[in-house]
Amino acid sequence: MSELYHDVTGIVLAGGKSRRMGRDKALLPFGGRPLASRSVEACRALFARTLLVGGARAELRALGVPVIADDCPGSPLGGLITALRHAGTPWIFALACDLPWPEPRLMARLVELRIGYDVVVPRSAAGYEPLCAVYGSGCLAPLERLLAAGTLRLFDLYPLVRTRVVPLAELAELVTPGRTFVNINTPEEFAMISSQEERKTVQAVSFVAKSGTGKTTLLEQVIAELKARGYRVGAIKHDAHRFDIDHPGKDSYRFTAAGADTMLISSPEKLALVKRHAAAPPIEELLATYFGDVDIVLTEGFKMSGLPKIEVHRRDRSATLLCRGEENDPTLLAVASDEPLALDVPVLDLNEPRRVADFVEARFLR
């Protein structure tokens, strides 16, 4: 879809007591902002309306969305009841405030499955993920009965309503192990996850397009412009096919042909690494492993990743976009086009690569 969801309200649950943490989890400083802002931004990328449920703390109002005091404080179940009472839409998407890395594309996939169900809940290796799930208005009465009976576990709701459990196998390309469903409960967990975030300092943006649009040419020009401005630039090309950078007759080819799992060629000017793997590693792993010494990484492709994206559009190639139309990719930042377009993101002049570099610089390097 090309617009935000209007029949689903994004709900960020921030009513917990944070007893194990010892201070308000929603307001923990994470990446220079309150932790809850991550969940708020993920919801605002998808839903026409977002609410924050869980108390009227003045600090929460600074996150820029309406704050609803919890009707039934003390448990996520009570938070859902409050959300369903105030949402005004047939469904809500419930998201915990303590998720450091919420994934909008995963959220959108779950929302797409909502028709005919009261609950759409993912199930990871750790079990149900009830605070990254869709709940319909049909859940309100059963939740109220559970609360009246003193039952506070969300899991007890699922047998009572039409529930669609989504196994991890259906979401594999949208889930990053050790990140997507991670939440923060203790000071030790916060310290560990903050350390991971600090190490993830590489800025990256992916240029995507239909084949034959000219994204490689644009990338080449933007790289040259950013280099001229003094930035250290990395580049990654996504290749869906097999490729070889060493050839028969070369020593490097003989090493890999003999079965070497990792082969590196080094010279005074550069090095090249050939590493075998059974499956393509996540883009986040590539960035963290190989690009710690650059200011920005520009990738070509990786449309299915969670990276922020600039789509390249050429009128003569196609009348439609990859990231707007049948699909609404919330990670789209801008479109570089050779024609004017009415979009919800900036439209850059494809024939002015310097302006595209200006956008990348302003968004990622200042």
Rank of each mutant, 00 (worst) to 15 (best):
L298S: 03
L154M: 14
R229G: 02
P76H: 05
L298D: 03
R232D: 04
R162A: 11
G15Y: 03
Y135R: 09
W101C: 07
A272F: 08
P167D: 02
P346R: 07
D156H: 15
P281I: 02
R109F: 07
I296F: 08
T289Q: 11
T320R: 14
V360A: 07
G32A: 06
G214T: 09
K270W: 13
L343W: 01
V360G: 04
R19Y: 00
I283V: 14
T9I: 04
G127C: 10
T180S: 13
H86W: 11
H241V: 06
A56F: 00
Y290P: 00
V274C: 09
G292F: 10
A342P: 01
D246H: 13
T9F: 07
V121D: 03
A141W: 11
A240H: 13
V8M: 05
L350S: 03
G230E: 04
R276Y: 09
L298N: 04
C72Q: 12
D118F: 10
T216Y: 07
L350I: 01
A14L: 11
V208A: 06
A336D: 05
T213R: 04
V274T: 12
R33K: 15
A280D: 08
V347P: 00
N328T: 06
V111F: 06
C97Q: 13
N328I: 01
Y158F: 15
L273V: 14
L113F: 03
T50C: 11
D7H: 13
P73L: 05
P104R: 14
L4T: 02
A280M: 10
A96V: 04
T50P: 10
G292E: 12
E326V: 12
V222L: 06
P353K: 06
L219K: 09
V40R: 10
G31C: 09
N351I: 00
T216M: 04
L343Y: 01
L174K: 05
T216G: 04
W91D: 11
F207I: 07
T151Q: 13
H277Q: 08
T186A: 10
L131D: 11
S252A: 15
E129M: 05
M304Y: 12
N328L: 12
L60A: 08
L146H: 14
V222I: 13
R199Y: 03
Y253K: 03
A257F: 08
E144A: 12
H86D: 02
I68T: 04
H313Y: 07
D261Q: 14
V294R: 05
V40T: 11
R114P: 05
T217F: 01
S137V: 14
V40F: 14
T50W: 10
E129H: 00
A148G: 09
V297P: 00
A260M: 11
M107D: 04
V53H: 05
L13T: 07
N328A: 12
L84P: 13
L218P: 01
F243N: 08
V360K: 09
S266L: 11
A148K: 11
A279H: 06
V134D: 02
D71C: 01
R85D: 13
L307G: 02
